[in-house]
Nucleic acid binder design. Structure first.
Lengths: 187, 187, 187, 187
DNA sequence: GATTAATCGAGACGGTACGTCCAGTCTTGGA
DNA sequence: TCCAAGACTGGACGTACCGTCTCGATTAATC
């Protein structure tokens, strides 16, 4: 019978080890030791490091990004949400976990899909956009998913590039991607 | 005196091993064997796997993406350039190298920077956009770099997500990102 | 729980590799391969090559020298035992293992002690001498250990020097060392 | 033309490195560095570590044992010479070089022969014995070489065994080996 | 006294083995 | 009965030396 306590301990250990040491340095042995569990217990239930991370993502053990606020002004909300995020990307330690997850996603399809499904950023952004759409703030024809991809993709790229932050970046990005779809009378 | 033959053989072996086995499975030992070189020769000159890849990128040993054509119609050119790329992203084998490079970039800052600098996609796209700008096809105020980030970032995200291709994706993405900046009379 | 099979295989591989290749050429890697064992298994239980040899000596895996016969005539028995041994010392291949063990003993105290304790030559010679002593063939005051050291030491020296054998050497050595201690009426 | 300065520096470095680190840890690279000489300069003139040591022995760069005194009383002289030597053998650091040379001799025939030829102990002991013989202190029939082998062999064995010193050992050994050959009226 | 050939130092090369870490499998003993 | 603990085979790690090889720089002997 599978021990729930062990399962949780393992996923939490996975998360903390990933945050602390990175994808490459993440070892099953280390996770087992941190979770006070035998290695075979891990191998019994998960086939690989990636599967562990995919599961840890699903479990919400890995940290979470806040949702954009909903003040009624989509543009302002998105900028307010994006700006500190881009600023944070300057700090390579703060984005370390992001990068580790990107690496994991690049290596393993399951992590990629799970990361996408579990990632609050993607989901919450989509929700905010579709809210705006239902209110008429955004054109009905606006391709919500693509807009999300463009914004988050640009963020990912900046993280990978270790880009430096400049004030106005967030506004420029939001405007670039959003401008074409703002409903005529919305402003 | 450093042996140029060894240097080239090592970088080429790095590229071919990376393409064949992926970032995680990439071993210095394997590279050394493939390059018919002693391990210490590699360690003498490169501190890590990442440094090898960064160098291989600089050397142009890793494959290259074509430039968008310049027919005079920016939108059409970008779509023609982007569409097959997105379609290709359906094929997980074809994008494997892309994903390996993303993983490497996520793990190592040097690779990230080099990948950005050496990546023809980023550069060529920027050139095409700035050409369009100088012709008045694109608004003078258009943030070329951000537009590039949004497009390529969306592509990266789809590769990570193993998204499936749908006809029209390329056009939608280009329109989303570009629409706000097309010069008034340009269409 | 330690694997007995692995332990024995490793000690036997050590012995055969030592005999075949010598102390200097003895590699842990080679032993591991010959014993079909992982290197870490060796390092888990033995800190060094020397410790392996010391253990192999204790296990009796390394070859053994016959005891001197006991015909009642000490001098004749010792000569009969020593003569073929000295003759053999002419053959550098036959004494190779002896030399390897000397080298190992010189490098490592544990091997030295174990070699002394496990070496049947020392022990059997001492037993034969003390038998002779209890029978009155040898003076009660005879320093058995020193006599043993002198005989075996001379042998070791000849092996190191790659001395050539001459008939009568054995008798001369036995007489030199023993004469002073033969009990007056024993002959 | 061969550089004499380099030759001497190399042999001295060999000697000091051997004394300092032992036979096993003796590296050509270390010798070259200590002698401020390129490795090929060593390989040009000596085929192996052993050859270096054999040469260093011939050069007298390696330390030397004193001759037994000649007071006219052979037994007393030998004991006086042997006793401090055996006592010294208790100190494992002091005998380290002896053991290293034994190891080298065991591994390499050339060193064995050279060690024997160059070793003052063997030679000086033989000289002292033959002096005693010519004076009639020792029987004309005494096998000088064997007596030497027995004494020095016993010493070597004690060094290998890391035996502890007991007062009287020297006297007992000398008596054991010598008693049979002291000329009747000599005492 | 200049030229030329040998030898020098330095150190990179292809390799082998080192001793370590971790992977993933298997076995055992205690809960 | 299940699981922690941990030993097992195996393979890659990054390092130390091996013995060989090119390099220029420096001598030493010949011309």
């Amino acid at each position: 019978m599978r021990s729930e306590a062990a399962r949780v301990a393992i996923l939490q250990a996975t998360a903390s080890q990933l945050a602390a040491r990175g994808w490459d340095q993440l070892t099953i042995e280390g996770i087992a030791a941190a979770a006070k569990v035998g290695k075979p217990t891990i191998y019994r239930w998960w086939p690989s490091k990636s599967a562990l991370i995919a599961d840890a993502l699903g479990e919400g053990v890995l940290p979470v990004m806040a949702a954009p606020a909903d003040s009624g002004d989509l543009r302002a909300d998105l900028i307010a949400w994006l700006d500190p995020t881009l600023r944070l990307a300057d700090d390579h330690d703060a984005t370390a976990l992001t990068r580790y997850l990107i690496a994991a996603a690049a290596e393993d399809a399951a992590v990629g899909e799970r990361l996408d499904a579990a990632n609050p950023a993607t989901r919450l952004l989509a929700e905010r956009l579709s809210q705006a759409q239902s209110r008429g703030e955004l054109a009905a024809s606006a391709p919500i998913e693509l807009i999300g991809d463009a914004i988050i993709g640009a963020f990912v790229l900046r993280v990978l590039r270790r880009a430096t932050y400049a004030p106005g970046d967030a506004a420029a990005l939001v405007d670039t991607v959003l401008a074409a779809h703002v409903a005529p009378g919305a402003r």
